[in-house]
Amino acid sequence: MNAILTHLPFVIAVTVAIAGLAVVLWRRNLIHVLMGMSLVESAVNLFLVALGYRHDAVAPIYTGLRDGGEHVYMVLPTVQALTLTAIVIGLATTAMMLSLVIVIHRHYGTTDVRDVRRLRE
């Protein structure tokens, strides 16, 4: 049971990442592509948080420890800090890319990736 609990988050993270990549590669609407990228991003964040997780551990807050003297495990806080940073960065990236899609739609009248390739011409 514990083994499943430990590995399940990674399995889910990989599944979500593959789903996201599939959307990025095969969807034609730019908005869908960006949704796929958000999926990949969430998968990476899940992966990072899962790295620090122990099912028998408590949140890494020293003052919150009820039995101060006894030996308890804490989940790793470093990855949580990394994830918070990655979420903020991801938000900024997504917002910027969406605004670029709006600009592209205004000028090209489409968000289909097959039509958004005027640079090549």
Partner: peptide
């Protein structure tokens, strides 16, 4: 729109 495409 061309520059926006490049940026995206």
């Amino acid at each position: 729109g061309l520059a926006a495409e490049a940026g995206l």
